[in-house]
Design a protein around this nucleic acid. Structure first.
Lengths: 215, 215
DNA sequence: AGTGCGGTGTTACTAGCGGTAACCCGAAGT
DNA sequence: ACTTCGGGTTACCGCTAGTAACACCGCACT
């Protein structure tokens, strides 16, 4: 039927439009940071609000669409880092570095995803929050849990352990990265090394000051 | 002078009022979750918006006031957990447990502090974000870093290491706790044990599946 | 031909938010 | 008496997310 073929063409057309809109949204997010408004995005795309809402439902929908985009890209990066050799120091460091490189490369997008309504204006901090971070980070955590389950032999109850560790490690990475991005207290390599050390049990290894020697 | 004494009395009076307002705010936050509005808080306190603004400047000020309250309380709890014996398993577990108990006891307040504008409504998620979490978690991270610096002998560059670890551990705790609070996949004790294991280097210890034996 | 229909787009609006200016009133100070 | 001052109010601004209602255009069908 021509109607189906036509609808197929229409489909691709609207999808292309959708992607154009997303690119416009991304541009304005890059510019305005996390407080990008629907009006501004629509203006950037050369249209007006209601079509945005037709395409994405509500602001959450638009956010989610943007988020899955970046989350997918980030997950792909991390996957290549994770799929390299075995789960040894080098691999952990590579994974950490992949994440940190990503957030370092596009801090604005990162802030939008994590802290949707932040502003870096000095003393004035408005303050509403973004909850988008949760889905992204949860996906990361689950993904990491899968890798851990696949790679390590954790014995009985290992799935739970893997999930706890996955989410824990992701949280560690995210929060340390957030802090580092704000204060820039050291180079990325140093940060990666310190975090890997932490994961590698140095906290247990260095031991107490009065109890025993450092190393 | 009576004027100074009077001003002193006034001072305490306004501070008492302030605390009353904060308690009202807390009540409504407990009820309405993270999307508590200034109107609602003012109504709960039996007054109207502008006085709230006279006391706290802007919504951020009110939030900060609430946040320092809970942060102080939480930090006090954690401090007692941290100041017990030495930095050994038991202490780490006690600290983790203290944090998790706190967020378990008052999830609403916790959500307000961390994800200011969340809603657990199923498919519909409105979504603005809150950035308040940052100060709270940053304080926690720095505090933990201090403790680590005090307790452990990290050699040269130890301060940086301690800060990285402090923020990393806080992030791990926070995010794993967030996930756990949502999914409740296990008991608190189990979670604490798994996280302590992770910090204790089990990730390095269990080793790869093809490479070597578990332990 | 013409007639409907799905798509894109607009203007104009609502409801509610954070935040503020202007005013009001009762109690202290001189 | 008269002023000043702090707690309190009404009424507003500007903004946001989100929504009708309407206009237009191209295509298909009869």
């Amino acid at each position: 039927m021509e109607s189906t073929e036509h609808s197929g063409r229409r489909q691709t057309a609207t999808e292309r439009r959708r992607r154009e809109l997303l690119e416009a949204a991304e541009r304005i997010v890059l510019r305005d940071g996390p407080d990008a408004s629907m009006n501004a995005i629509a203006a950037e795309a050369g249209i007006t609000k209601p079509i945005l809402y037709r395409h994405f439902g509500d602001k959450g929908g638009l956010y989610r669409a943007l988020a899955v985009r970046h989350t997918d890209a980030l997950l792909a990066n991390l996957a290549t880092a994770l799929d390299a050799p075995v789960l040894r120091r080098d691999q952990v460091e590579a994974t950490l570095d992949a994440y940190l490189s990503a957030i370092e490369a596009r801090p604005q997008v990162y802030r939008f995803l994590m802290h949707p309504s932040d502003e870096d204006n000095a003393s004035e901090s408005g303050f509403d929050v973004g909850r988008h971070s949760a889905p992204l980070l949860r996906r990361l955590g689950e993904e990491l849990a899968k890798v851990i389950t696949d790679r390590l032999d954790l014995g009985p109850g290992g799935e739970l352990t893997a999930r706890v560790w996955g989410h824990g490690i992701v949280g560690m990475m995210q929060h340390a990265g957030d802090w580092w991005l704000r204060e820039r207290p050291c180079s990325r390599e140093q940060l990666v090394k310190q975090l890997a050390d932490l994961l590698w049990g140095q906290l247990a290894a260095v031991d107490d000051r009065t109890d025993g020697p450092g190393f």
